[in-house]
Design a binder for these strands. Sequence first.
DNA 1: GGAGCATTCAAACATTCACTTGAATAGTCC
DNA 2: GGACTATTCAAGTGAATGTTTGAATGCTCC
Lengths: 226, 226
Amino acid sequence: MSDRVAKDALFDGFARITKALSSGRRSEIVDLLAQGERSVEEIASEIGQSVANTSQHLQQMLKAGLVGTRRDGNRIYYSLAGGRVLDLWVAVRDVAAEHLAELDSLAAAYLGDRSTLQTVSRAELVDRMRRGDVVVLDVRPEPEFRAGHIAGAVSMPLDELRRKVRGVPKDREVVAYCRGPYCVYADDAVRTLQRRGYRAARLEDGFPEWSRSGHPVENGVDSPAS
Amino acid sequence: MSDRVAKDALFDGFARITKALSSGRRSEIVDLLAQGERSVEEIASEIGQSVANTSQHLQQMLKAGLVGTRRDGNRIYYSLAGGRVLDLWVAVRDVAAEHLAELDSLAAAYLGDRSTLQTVSRAELVDRMRRGDVVVLDVRPEPEFRAGHIAGAVSMPLDELRRKVRGVPKDREVVAYCRGPYCVYADDAVRTLQRRGYRAARLEDGFPEWSRSGHPVENGVDSPAS
DNA sequence: GGAGCATTCAAACATTCACTTGAATAGTCC
DNA sequence: GGACTATTCAAGTGAATGTTTGAATGCTCC
């Protein structure tokens, strides 16, 4: 079979995509870039690596076509190459959650005990927002809110939440969301709110998944609250 | 941030899934197992590797949870762990096709010139089968047909096709399908048929995608032809 | 043009990886 | 039990990978 070498080359091509995701650090980068573009320095500090090392990871991903770049001044902003890349990342997470034996304990070690945390699915949230019996808090850092958020949500980064809890109305249940299913911000917010006597739950995943599934999104200015 | 080490460990966990797919040989294995379970020996010969090496690849995939095993006699059959794994593989292929610069030339090198090949989407095929103006040929090896095929398709492996072309009715267009979008069997069949004066096209992807998207499937015996 | 910044490059290191070879296991069939 | 088969294990090799360190590049702003 003389196609052997061509077939191997083709599948090595597919493998370049998975190789670009096959390091924990690069996975963190994809997860981060799902929130929007970032400079190399921001990415490096977020994943806890040196700038040089981060740059090399980014370049591998760039060669594989997973990310793109935009220059602004002397800063270079990286972003995911397209919606399909997010689909791929979601598929990876799903398969890991479903089939990787030790994932549960890894997640528990990072996220802590989630058993007291109520979660709400996207469909449920849509429903309850329509009925108006829920306050939706975006607990990510404010720039991420500005780059895009659930239509009708209020920006309330964690540190701000702790200072201004009293401002949050207590008559309705609060739903917090953040970057995704493995992001700790919303967990933290829900625990804080529960401690203060609120009824609170977290969205089961985060903003990228909300947006990807075609739900209503806003960006730019702050939205009308409550 | 003391969570750093736990977060890294979690994402290293996700990366174990992509690592399990990050070799061309293992990608070929996933693509093959999408057709159904296979013994180690069958897999080894299909991907052109030694049995020992193939076994080690399979064990990596097993540890990552991508595949499962079943023992029958002293043979061990490997199969994909679940539908989500196929979703993941499809996502990898899609991202590669969309974003990996050199994929086109790799595909062309393996598949040859596809410009004269008509393709039919799944939706179109459903439509045309309903109207009854099309003959659907499954040109994979016969055991794969037996394990599951498009409802209403006729088994016609390539070598058989070359011997029995005359038996194929000429009044309707012929649509051939095989293992997937990067499988050469259907291309080959369409070319053969075109040379003999048939109107022929290939399904744009293959049986696993058909089945995964919930289209009607049969297995076991041969289906009533034409 | 020169200082200052963000990013990339280059070299070096220990580690991991894919594949080979040859031996060891675990099952079947008589 | 013993011959046989399919699969796995173990050790070894050369290549690729992730990270660090320090220098080089390319851009902006004065």
